[in-house]
Design a binder for these strands. Structure first.
Lengths: 310, 310
DNA sequence: GTAATATATGAAACGGGTACCACATCAAGT
DNA sequence: ACTTGATGTGGTACCCGTTTCATATATTAC
């Protein structure tokens, strides 16, 4: 494998000058450029990116920590992330966490070990506080409101829209709301925001609730659970349109009347089935998160979310 | 930033011995291990992954070249890829190509420059032949039948199922088939396989066809185009369930009777709308492709695809 | 008792670039 | 004529590990 030293030797110039040709930087005569270029082509030489990364102390890799690809917002978020990354010459490395704290910590360690220039936590299991300690090793971005923590963040302003949504539901006369969430209130910002909004509007904690729902099938199964309860829901508030679609299917399959519903993420299923939804604009969140990752700024970028009535 | 040399100096041992502690390899006394471990902890030292990669000549990164995240098979494929990668400690780097040959070539060059250990082409714009030249720089896997080329491949056996599907459609009495593809026959294996199967069953080239369809919206728009034709389709053969759903919506919106349809990829939309589909088992293709990437074997792994009648 | 082998450690080359600094020219400015 | 600044190039430290080879001591085997 030929390296920059070989090119230097063969061309009769120094490695510094060869490096200048490669990077098109600094003072350089046309003579030198041409001669070196010729040798480079003859030898079919290309510089080694890893060596370059080591020397520059920068990898142009950004790690994206995500629980799993089944997560409702995955598609939108990743699209936004990739658009910005691609435009700026950065690489997107997908890091599945399964919401496992050990795994998330491993990724933080990898940041420290210089595997990535930055990490974007699209969701997380470990406490925000823990992220703080790793900021000195590279920028860390979270996709939620970090509150008082000085952590870069791009996130959807969900509370307001959740409240708007529940008010809308209440005004329509629904009072037995079945709520579907992906994780328990204690461990998920999303869940606690949702429930806080519910409580603000309804003035009580929800009775009909399931906190381990992510997919269509989960939504379906959750309805089976609700049917065993004494209280049956007259409205389903789901954490994704796909989930809502699964819930709906349960009622259809069991020849029960389908309650009104609302989904989230503006997924295709909601569009097809005409289920109202909340679009958290995760595509935009993804773009902004990646911009923060690249710039290294520690600031908060809230993004409006939107209730789509149908 | 402390490095291995600092640890060596502070502990009174050589870098070789420190390296042995880090990698838990070779002969090593307990005394040395303990002393060095202590210094490592005191200094809060972690080795630099980039330096390690350079030294070892391996990155544990696998690049995934994909046209864009809107592609119907994206979700399934990426899930399979990530599962295997995660299990084996590899990193998945997403590389959007937009089917642009220049961009695809850039990724091949990056393989040569050691940015990745392997590349998986989930789809491609450049000719297969071009991939051959880069195999010496790392394993290259394609997700289609490479024919006579000696290229590692994990791919769905689509022809048989396409033929089965068209026969099924024909037996049901449909003769004016509107075909939706993502790319023209000349530049896409998928398209040419689809059309070859159609022709084998119907004995003629299709008249109603659109070759730039990828999304729900594209499907919708394509129907508007078909409606302008003299020949109206009595069956829509779409390249994805989401696309079929878009097509269906066009008819609904325009109060036309919805023709029978078939989708592909076994997407949620097809399930919801009860549209028959072809499941190409891309999840499995993803797993196998990543296994090939890691093992470096140059072999073909065909995977059965499946017609799902509904 | 001595050769053979296992154990422990270090020196230094190697992987392959980048970038700072020194040095040498040469032309323009005063 | 002399200073100054632009231009061109080289030397070399630096980024940070891994790994081979040599050396030294401790066991074990015969």
């Amino acid at each position: 494998m030929t390296n920059i030293h070989d090119i230097a030797r063969l061309s009769g110039y120094s490695v510094s000058t060869v490096s200048r040709v490669l990077n098109n930087s600094g003072y350089l005569s046309d003579t030198a450029r041409n001669k070196i270029q010729k040798i480079i082509e003859e030898q079919d030489y290309v510089p080694n990116d890893v060596a370059r990364d080591l020397s520059r102390g920068k990898t142009y890799n950004v790690g994206i920590v995500l629980p799993h690809t089944k997560h409702p917002y995955f598609t939108h978020l990743i699209k936004g992330i990739m658009e910005t990354a691609f435009a700026k010459g950065y690489h997107v490395v997908l890091l599945p966490s399964l919401y496992n704290a050990d795994i998330e910590n491993q990724y933080l360690e990898q940041l420290r070990r210089k595997s990535y220039d930055a990490l974007i936590f699209t969701s997380r299991g470990i406490p925000l506080k823990r992220l703080l300690k790793y900021q000195k090793y590279g920028s860390i971005i979270c996709c939620e409101n970090p509150g008082d923590y000085q952590i870069a963040a791009a996130y959807s302003l969900r509370s307001k829209t959740f409240t708007e949504a529940f008010s809308y539901v209440k005004n329509q006369g629904y009072h037995e709301i079945g709520i579907l969430l992906s994780r328990p209130r204690e461990s998920s910002t999303t869940s606690s925001l949702t429930l806080a909004s519910y409580e603000a509007v309804y003035g009580a904690t929800p009775k009909i609730i399931n906190t381990s729902v992510t997919t269509y099938q989960d939504g379906y199964n959750a309805m089976a659970g609700f049917q065993k309860n004494e209280k049956k829901p007259d409205f389903i508030f789901a954490n994704g349109d796909d989930v809502a679609a699964g819930a709906r299917q349960y009622y259809l399959d069991n020849e029960l009347s389908v309650p009104a519903m609302m989904g989230q993420e503006n997924q295709l299923s909601g569009n097809i089935l005409n289920i109202p939804t909340i679009d958290h604009h995760f595509h935009e969140v993804g773009r902004k998160a990646m911009e923060l990752a690249i710039s290294g700024e520690i600031k908060m970028i809230p993004i409006n979310s939107e209730l789509i009535k149908r």
